[in-house]
Design a protein around this nucleic acid. Structure first.
Length: 255
DNA sequence: ATTACTACCTGACAGC
DNA sequence: TGCTGTCAGGTAGTAA
């Protein structure tokens, strides 16, 4: 569910509350949330130094190591909530707690000695770097945009929305500098606008205070199959690319 | 290097 | 009311 704008919104909501607080205990309510390891021992007793985001990962820098949270499809991080039936882990502080909720159980909350290694963050990436990372590859552009080892943070919604804004077909390959520049611009714009509107809430996503975002109202192709393109009125199409539902305008986004 | 398929889970929704 | 199939903001592993 959450992509970069949603994770950024969550992190902005946590930032005023968590730094300086001591973790008394990490309580796992579902084993999957610990990803087969257990950082509870290492994290306990430590003070959170900083809350930040890299790609779709939420990172709490501790005095020693880091807490790495990935929400995958349905994860939530809630500041002022009682644990629901889907609570998977609870970070307990000296006063208060943070609940990690996850219906589908794909997400995780773990301690690591070092932050995870990911591609460059998509938000604010330099144009030249963007072109360097996506130029000269033979694969189709959409799966490349989703590759978190290349550029981190873009997911299915924002890949489709950015490609539409850049007027690039999701199956296009070997993009030249001109189209990559347009795509870089489109990625920055769509991410910034989505953050400004608190992210997209399709079914599950809410921020750390439990509030939904509103950027779904501004989607131009995602979830608009069969509806007229906002630019040219041609119906939006849905195809499958790399096993992901992919939405685009067949007239505005030529092969 | 690139792509496809399967798997991990639960829930919502459409169609019969 | 079921039941069945499809789909979902993600990613890993394995095979062609």
């Amino acid at each position: 569910m959450p992509e970069l704008p949603e994770v950024e919104t969550i992190v902005r909501g946590l930032a005023p509350h968590l730094p300086g607080r001591r973790i008394v205990q990490v309580r796992y309510l579902a084993p999957r949330a610990a990803l087969g390891r257990n950082g509870a021992t290492e994290a306990a007793g430590q003070v959170i130094q900083r809350v930040r985001r890299h790609g779709k990962h939420i990172l709490f820098d501790l005095e020693h190591g880091v807490i790495d949270i990935h929400l995958r499809m349905t994860g939530k991080l809630l500041l002022h909530a009682d644990p629901s039936a889907y609570a998977r882990a609870i970070l307990e502080f000296d006063n208060g707690s943070l609940v990690f909720d996850d219906v589908r159980q794909f997400g995780y909350l773990i301690w690591r000695p070092e932050p995870p290694v990911l591609g460059d963050d998509a938000l604010g990436i330099e144009e030249l770097r963007f072109i360097e990372l996506l130029g000269g590859l033979r694969s189709r552009i959409k799966p490349a945009l989703l590759d978190q080892d290349r550029i981190a943070g873009i997911g299915n919604i924002y890949a489709d929305e950015a490609l539409f804004r850049a007027r690039i077909h999701p199956l296009a390959a070997k993009l030249g500098a001109l189209r990559l520049k347009r795509l870089h611009r489109a990625v920055q714009e769509v991410l910034e606008e989505a953050i400004a509107r608190g992210g997209s809430s399709i079914s599950d996503y809410v921020d750390a205070e439990g509030r939904a975002g509103s950027f779904q109202e501004a989607h131009r192709v995602y979830g608009r199959v069969g509806l007229p393109c906002l630019t040219c009125d041609v119906p939006i199409r849905r195809i499958v690319v790399g096993q992901r539902g992919t939405h685009f305008c067949p007239a505005c986004q030529k092969r």
